[in-house]
Design a protein around this nucleic acid. Structure first.
Lengths: 217, 217
DNA sequence: TTTTTTTTGACATTTATTTCACAACAAATG
DNA sequence: CATTTGTTGTGAAATAAATGTCAAAAAAAA
């Protein structure tokens, strides 16, 4: 099992690139094509593939269809992934309405909040009271949750999520969530991202090669 | 000039940790304290600091106040950083209303869209027609923009931004934006983030050490 | 003042990641 | 069928990043 985050991110990128290439009519691709599309070297593409046991044909490259299936398998995307959101403030609400997930096999199935004025139990994606969280998670066997509550509540709410059985949290609160055992935490900190950008833009004034910040990274 | 993104991210983390420690009444800290707060080793903290020429006192550790000032300097945060948003959909709107930036010296000064029904020219943070983008950017000397338009528009709009003088783009559209010369691009791709989480949660079922996904990278 | 204690700062070591280089191979060509 | 061509797959080399170690420094204690 490959446990290198950068590598997994690249895999996601390859998959996205493949979808675009497929839309353009590509039936097979070479490592170099994917490298260009994903902004890496062709060696890296082949190395990544070999790490996951993905093989192509010498001289023939890779079949786009097969590649998409294999990568999706590795990323666990061949079955629909159900995800919940906790915290229906501005960010939570935006994510709730974000249309980009469905195409990628990710479905937001419910959101939770403590503010009764936000409850919409009958909606297609219902907003439910946080008290119902545990029951819902266990009933629907949900493993992934997005945390979008204010920073002061984040740690407390994350504990509720974990105790209910959530195994992976994507945290938007601007605090560094401490990882409990067996739970994976991904942090998206907007201020940190902007600070990064500011640093490198300022640095640009002194040095100058163009660059794309990796995720990562 | 340090060009290692992970290192800069850690610097942001140290700064956040320092703010919390300061709120708790800390006057000085040791590398070990910061390491704990940021989830790294003390060697790493000292290494990072030495990279940026930040020094402390042997036995005395580091003064919290000085450290915050120095790190803020490095991150270019001692003056207010003005940022604009392009695209006032769900995500753009959420960012527009996000309160977390101001404390960190980042100010959203305007947003832009092509939909007249969204214009609010008189608001504290106005939403303006995209046609006014160039004039506004040049008048206010803005370097950083957040791109939150639908994917099909992202590339086109990024070119408008760059030609108007924007030097750093934080891209929320789910495409890999190609970096034009002298422009820094940071990508936040929600689907990629979730895919990562899904992968590692699935992996967890087989192997088991607890983990926090680093940014970075 | 001297000794002890504690922590930094620098460097050495280890570990991880990326790139290089090329043999092995499959398709295309003659 | 042999030869040429172009691409993969991989082990070795290079590069980058993190960690460990300890002398030197500074504060505190004796």
């Amino acid at each position: 099992m490959v446990m290198n985050r950068k590598c997994i991110i690249r895999l996601s990128r390859y998959k996205n690139a493949l979808k675009r290439l497929k839309a353009l009519g590509f039936v097979k691709v070479f490592s170099g094509n994917l490298a260009d599309a994903a902004g890496v070297t062709s060696s890296q593409v082949r190395k990544d593939f070999s790490l996951f046991g993905i093989t192509g044909n010498r001289r023939g490259g890779y079949r786009v269809d097969e590649l998409v299936v294999k990568i999706s398998q590795i990323l666990g995307k061949n079955e629909l992934q159900k995800v919940v959101i906790v915290g229906v403030g501005h960010i939570g609400n935006a994510l709730l309405r974000y249309k980009g997930f469905e195409a990628g096999g990710i479905k937001i199935v419910a959101a939770f909040d403590i503010d009764p004025s936000k409850y919409t139990k009958a909606a297609e994606v219902p907003v439910l009271p946080l008290e119902e969280f545990r029951r819902f998670i266990q009933e629907h066997q949900i493993k992934i949750g997005i945390l979008a509550v204010p920073d002061v509540a984040a740690h407390h709410v994350s504990e509720i999520m974990i105790s209910a059985g959530i195994k992976g949290i994507l945290n938007f609160a601007p605090i560094q969530l401490r990882a409990a055992d067996e739970v994976i935490i991904g942090n998206i900190n907007l201020e940190v991202e902007l600070e990064n950008l500011i640093y490198f833009v300022n640095a640009q004034d002194k040095a100058d090669p163009a660059m794309v910040l990796a995720d990562d990274e």
